[in-house]
Each structure stands twice: as C-alpha cells, then as structure tokens.
Amino acid sequence: KLQEMGYDNVFIETVEGWPSLETIIPKLKAKKIKKVTIMPFMMVAGDHANNDMAGSEEDSHKSILEKEGIKVEAYIHGLGENEAVRNVFVERANAAWDALEATGQAAE
C-alpha cells in the first residue's frame, strides 16, 4: 500500500514472519540504498524493537544490515507515542462502544 502511495523507499519487514529481512535486503541493494532508519511498526517499542530489531547482538536486524554494508540508524518509538495514532484508537473504541449500545449488547 505504501508503494501505491508513492513511498518507494519505505519497506516493512517482520521479526518472525513475512516479509522477512531476507526478502528486504535484496530490494535495498537493488535500489543501492546505503543508509536506513529502522523503526518499529508496533504500538509499543518493547523487546522486539530494542533487541531483535535494533540490538547489538549479531542476529539483530541492525547487525545483519550493517554486515551487508548498510548504515543503520534506529528510531525506537512505538506508534502509541504518536497522538494522532492514539486518537484513531480512541475514536474506533468509541465507535465500537456506540455500536454495542445501539444493539443492546454493551455491558452495564
């Protein structure tokens, strides 16, 4: 979806799923990208973000990218730190509650 919107330099990969880092590295190399900023696409930047993604261990995504010759900066902030994202959650929670009340299914 991001590429459809014109963001051809944004890639999303997962820690334990698809697309994996191994599917992203060839795309970075094909575009001759030498520097990336990694950031979690998670509500909270916890263990996965701090260790698996941006940690200093040799199997972290940061370390793997650096071994591939790509300079890595890490932006370790969860989406939940963004007020606009929090507002979307509140709006959707309120809409869900309103829908439950309309059907009489809301808890007293």
Score class of each variant (00 low, 15 high):
Glu58Arg: 05
Val36Ile: 01
Met43Leu: 02
Ala99Thr: 07
Ala96Cys: 06
Ser60Arg: 07
Trp18Cys: 01
Glu83Gly: 11
Val44Met: 02
Ala84Asp: 04
Ala54Gly: 10
Asn50Ser: 06
Leu28Thr: 09
Val88Asp: 02
Met5Trp: 07
Glu91Arg: 13
Ile24Gln: 08
Glu83Ser: 15
Gly80Ile: 05
Glu16Lys: 09
Asp98Cys: 00
Tyr7Cys: 05
Leu2Gly: 09
Gly104Lys: 04
Gly6Gln: 05
Ile76Thr: 14
Ser20Trp: 05
Lys35Phe: 02
Glu58Ser: 13
Pro19Asn: 15
Phe11Val: 07
Phe41Lys: 05
Met5Lys: 12
Lys27Asp: 03
Gly78Arg: 08
Glu91His: 09
Asn50Asp: 02
Phe89Val: 10
Glu4His: 13
Val72Ala: 12
Ile38Glu: 01
Glu91Ile: 09
Val36His: 04
Glu57Asp: 14
His77Tyr: 06
Leu79Arg: 05
His77Phe: 09
His48Val: 02
Ile70Ser: 01
Ile12Thr: 11
Lys67Glu: 02
Trp18Leu: 03
Ala106Trp: 11
Met43Cys: 02
Tyr75Asn: 14
Lys1Pro: 08
Asn94Ser: 03
Thr23Trp: 13
Pro40Gly: 08
Gln3Thr: 06
Lys32Cys: 07
Met39Trp: 08
Glu91Asn: 11
Asp8Val: 15
Asp47Tyr: 06
Val44Tyr: 09
Glu16Gly: 08
Asn50Gly: 13
Ile64Tyr: 06
Ala84Glu: 03
Gln105Asp: 10
Lys32Trp: 04
Val85Gln: 03
Pro19His: 14
Gly69Pro: 01
Leu2Ala: 14
Glu83Trp: 09
Thr37Pro: 00
Lys67Phe: 02
Ala74Lys: 05
Arg92Phe: 15
Glu81Leu: 09
